[in-house]
Design a protein around this nucleic acid. Sequence first.
DNA 1: ATAGCTGCAAATGCTTTGCAAGGCC
DNA 2: GGCCTTGCAAAGCATTTGCAGCTAT
Lengths: 149, 149
Amino acid sequence: MWHGRVKVEANKDMERTHAGVADLLRKAGLRPTRQRMALGYLLFGKEDRHVTAEMLHEEAVATGERVSLATVYNTLHQFKRAGLLRELAIEGAKAYFDTNTSNHNHFYLEREGHLMDIPGDTIRVDGLPEPPSGTRISHIDVVVRLSKR
Amino acid sequence: MWHGRVKVEANKDMERTHAGVADLLRKAGLRPTRQRMALGYLLFGKEDRHVTAEMLHEEAVATGERVSLATVYNTLHQFKRAGLLRELAIEGAKAYFDTNTSNHNHFYLEREGHLMDIPGDTIRVDGLPEPPSGTRISHIDVVVRLSKR
DNA sequence: ATAGCTGCAAATGCTTTGCAAGGCC
DNA sequence: GGCCTTGCAAAGCATTTGCAGCTAT
């Protein structure tokens, strides 16, 4: 079974540089504009992250970048379409975007609304019934909800 | 392992009657008002269902009930708090409520935005890591996303 | 009688969109 | 230059809330 994490790791060094982000964007068919560069650098420059549009916008502004919230939304969706991000449906109105697009699952701390990766492929899902005819499984989301003991 | 479905089945006959719904509400500490009776009857009168507030409201209005959308929202959350419903975070802004509160999982047809139960406990999740200390697993959501072949 | 419900309309929170101005190739 | 992007403000949706009036017990 192919495991995406390998690819992600392989790109890490490139992604940490400006040239790397520019490259990533061009490969995705997106012009490396100032705003996309800044957001891409924040998203892909470090380890894997879970962000909402608002979090990313605040962070960009805090580092002195001029980006509008609307552009953050648009950019997140462009990155998602390009396969650089995955959107997570957790709950409530907020949309989370995950920079780790490989095959993995999540802990969700209900009280704080905080997301954590469950690393690697430690989780195995067995006993799946056949999907209805004419359909195929595109993805399996597993969210382990945690509450305070 | 306890399996909630047993309890649900045992109540089915009662829930199909008006008296049964009234009983269900009283046990949940909710007054059996006209609106709650109507919504409860729609929700618990038949087989398990997945509804949004808007779907349920339209359905109620279509059967000649006078209920406001705000009351549908409030009622759904009251039912959820009472353990009669479970809320599903699927995607986008819409909240789905599931009348089957037992341990089961879902197929989600991406194209149509349609939800289906995966019956019983055919799915097994193995290899869960320890939850972070101070927390316990409250629930595991598995959503199998389907696309057209 | 009174605590609890309901309906309306306004408010909220997140997200998307229209369009004029600006930037990349 | 021409097409893609951006920013702003306005619009859009789903949902929640304040509050006056109604209702179950």
